[in-house]
Design a protein around this nucleic acid. Structure first.
Length: 272
DNA sequence: CCAGACGTTGTT
DNA sequence: GTCTGG
DNA sequence: CCAGACGTTGTT
DNA sequence: GTCTGG
């Protein structure tokens, strides 16, 4: 499901676009700026741009800073009890149906919710070998995105904790920030490619989803009955499979011969 | 009780 | 087959 | 998610 | 940390 996506906007453009939705966002910290490289091929274990809640009031009685923050977090959640950060290799997704029952995720639902800004995400359609002209099993990548190029917000959970081995709290290595993407059943228009998809949260829900004062169950209720049809699939270059490839050319339509045996998800028929 | 996992996807 | 690296 | 490795010794 | 498996 969601193990690869595109996020090609600069941090400054992201902030501007999110502010335009009505959600205040603080300027990007210099330390995060360098990590927030625009990319057409974002992969697990990389630093990704994540919207997190406004900073809670510090000390006593101060009003909270109302602005959300755009932070760089590592994709692949590492819970604070993890002895080996390699557990994050497997925790790139959390099923929304079961998230409240999972030890690795349950505690995050109440106060560590986030939004991952994205252009769209990639899914690979399995092409059975008997259908592909070559007689070999293949996978054809699709890009799922709004036709108008609009910004998506993927619902996620994150973790942020002090690494005890590093003495200096000002050392960037003294803190580990990681994130996972919530997944759900694919909407009907996408199921011919893949049966799961990330939870795509409309911009009008971002503020409450991020709000630490909104209890977990109430926040999860925001994810029920989300609108469908905003995202449409289109076949793209197989080169997207290698994360070292990163350019807008990945989104070009493949040659017709690449699509032998591939089901057009918009019609359910094979590509001609 | 301690030891060990803690996750999702897709596939034959 | 399974894990790591990107 | 896919691509690519899958190993050890000793050396700078 | 917290739950499951033994």
């Amino acid at each position: 499901m969601c193990g690869r996506y595109a996020a090609s906007r600069s941090p400054e453009d992201l902030v501007e676009e999110v502010v335009a939705t009505g959600l205040p966002v603080a300027p990007v910290a210099a330390t995060d700026r360098a990590a927030l490289r625009p990319s057409f091929n974002v992969a697990p274990q990389q630093q990704v741009a994540v919207l997190v809640a406004p900073r809670p009031p510090e000390g006593g009685g101060d009003a909270p800073d109302p602005a959300a923050r755009l932070r760089a977090l590592r994709w692949g959640l590492v819970p604070s009890w993890a002895k080996d950060p390699a557990v994050g290799n497997r925790m790139i997704n959390a099923r929304v149906e079961t998230v409240t029952g999972k030890p690795a995720y349950r505690s995050l639902v109440g106060s560590r919710r986030c939004v991952l800004p994205a252009d769209g995400w990639y899914e690979w359609q399995a092409v059975p070998k008997e259908r592909s002209g070559t007689g070999k099993a293949r996978k054809q990548p699709f890009f799922m995105a709004p036709p108008d190029g609009g910004l998506l917000g993927l619902a996620g959970l994150y973790s942020w904790w002090r690494v005890p081995d590093v003495a200096d709290p000002d050392d960037p290595a003294a803190w580990l920030g990681t994130v996972t993407v919530l997944t759900t059943d694919a909407e009907p228009g996408l199921r011919a490619v893949h049966d799961r998809m990330p939870v795509v949260l409309p911009a009008e829900h971002w503020r409450r989803w991020l709000d630490r004062d909104v209890p977990g169950p109430e926040a999860l209720a925001l994810l029920a009955d989300l609108p469908t049809g905003r995202v449409v699939p289109r076949p793209v270059q197989p080169a997207v499979g290698n994360v070292r490839n990163d350019s807008p050319a990945l989104l070009a339509p493949p040659a017709a011969e690449e699509l032998v045996g591939v089901v057009d998800p918009t019609t359910g028929e094979l590509f001609a």
